[in-house]
Design a protein around this nucleic acid. Sequence first.
DNA 1: AGTACCACCTGACGGC
DNA 2: TGCCGTCAGGTGGTAC
Length: 260
Amino acid sequence: MPELPEVRIYKKYFDSTSLHQKIKGLKASANRILETPKKTLNKKLVGEKFEKTRAHGKYLFARAGDNWLVLHFGMTGDLHYGKGEPPEHTKLQVLFENDYCLSFQNPRKLGKVGLVNSVQEFIEDKGLGPDALRISYDQFKKAVQSSRGTMKYTLMNQKKVAGVGNIYSDEILYQTRIHPETKANQLSDDKVRRVYDATRRILRTAIRHKGVEKGELPNHYLIPYRHGDKKCPKGHDLKKIKVSGRSTYYCPAEQKKSAK
DNA sequence: AGTACCACCTGACGGC
DNA sequence: TGCCGTCAGGTGGTAC
């Protein structure tokens, strides 16, 4: 679920619920998703306020005092702000002075929670590429044309571009009529331009439509058809293959490997 | 530099 | 109804 658009939506939710309130307490389940010990989280966060958030690719950061809380959702997750019992699978609760609580849910425990001093450093340590909505065309072009792998792999490679995952990469390739196994370094400048434009358009549209889970994407999008009757939005047969180990849906009628 | 495969986890779904 | 295998939109490590 959480690729760039979903994380941007979490950010908005975080901003509208949890900024500028004193943190009264924390509850973290002892779990592998914690990258920073509970004690440290407590020491650094209690008494502080979240002042602002940032998103980079699939990561969300919230600054409190001298630290940034880093949230990564893995394949499943959500934020919930409310009073009373936290939702199921809550791994971290941040309790505010008004007795409301921000809960970070992570059913499959594939996410991560921790504290860092610098967002920039974190991004560099992870080797993340530029955020998919902030990358310039020149950077993008270089990232694509220097890649010897497939387009699918390239778009999903967080070291090249941060934020695009399995389903949005399928969408981008569908809308630009590129076969997912096309070699990235064989793409013409013109095609790269179209992929760049499509990426921005699709990610922005998805944010506006509240993401894959909570909203509804336009009906000419491929994504809603992944689990349907195996037809693309135009009625052609969809094909499902594995590309670098990930389930990949594409429309053989429109996405040809040899397309100019 | 890429790819293929495994691991980490849990829930949902289809087949029997 | 219930059990079982398979799959799921994440990353990270390994060996080739």
